[in-house]
Amino acid sequence: MYETKYHKASSVADAVSLIGKSDDGKLLSGGQTLVPTMKARLAAPSDLVDVSGIADMHGVSISGSTVTIGAATTHANVAGNADLQAKCGGVACLAAGIGDPAVRHKGTIGGSIANNDPAADYPAAMLALDATIKTNAREIAAADFFVGMFETALEEDEVIVSISFDAPAKAAYAKFPNPASRYAMVGVFAAQTVDGARVAVTGAGDDGVYRQFDMEAALDTDWSPNALAGVQVGSEGLLSDMHGDATYRANLVKVMTRRAVAGCA
């Protein structure tokens, strides 16, 4: 790992100030992606501003139908939150399947979405639920936030503070893990929201997370796995790699959507 300067931020304002003052700084939350990337010498931030200790950025709160999750909340704390399990089990379940137990104890929702790894799980839920990403400066709709592979709408010195969304009537996440990395080879978050059916796919697209509109339309007509039978998923725009080509991923999009819908509570 290259040399870096570590700072522990005490508040969101402190984090913003520290990152603003740094030469080429990066925010560090759980570090479960950033630290391995730095170990591999693929990232060399001059400064690391650790936001994981900022109290305001922790926890899950539910007010009416709105769920708010602090950006530094670990996957384990999202997965284990009883209120969230009751209100939107799909998101809790998704969090329970990220990485492995040790990774879930450290990795955070804010870190995951800020990185926008094309195989990360959270972006699918955020996009499907039309989540709002709240930063120190503004609120960004998920559809505008996820720009492309490893790219988001965040400015360099912008800190994600929390994520909020309206709990859907039904939601579930179905993930097909890559046999090696266990990241999502295809992950589908299906939700029945006030605005209609939502199907968001991670892992498969060559430009990151995306919505499968034709499936949403079919589900709007009939919310059931059978409604998807006639929908063809093409392989264009899907990833091909040693673990599976685009044709296989297209099949998995279909199968995982069916399973997500079937698994919806």
Binding site: P179, A180, S181, Y183, M242, H243
Partner: peptide, 23 residues
């Protein structure tokens, strides 16, 4: 069922970590 070292046409090893070599 899981393991295989994969090289591309330029003889670069594509499976040189546990991200791609399925243990």
């Amino acid at each position: 069922m899981l393991e295989g070292v994969v090289y591309d046409d330029d003889a670069q090893q594509l499976s040189a970590s546990y991200m791609d070599y399925a243990m």
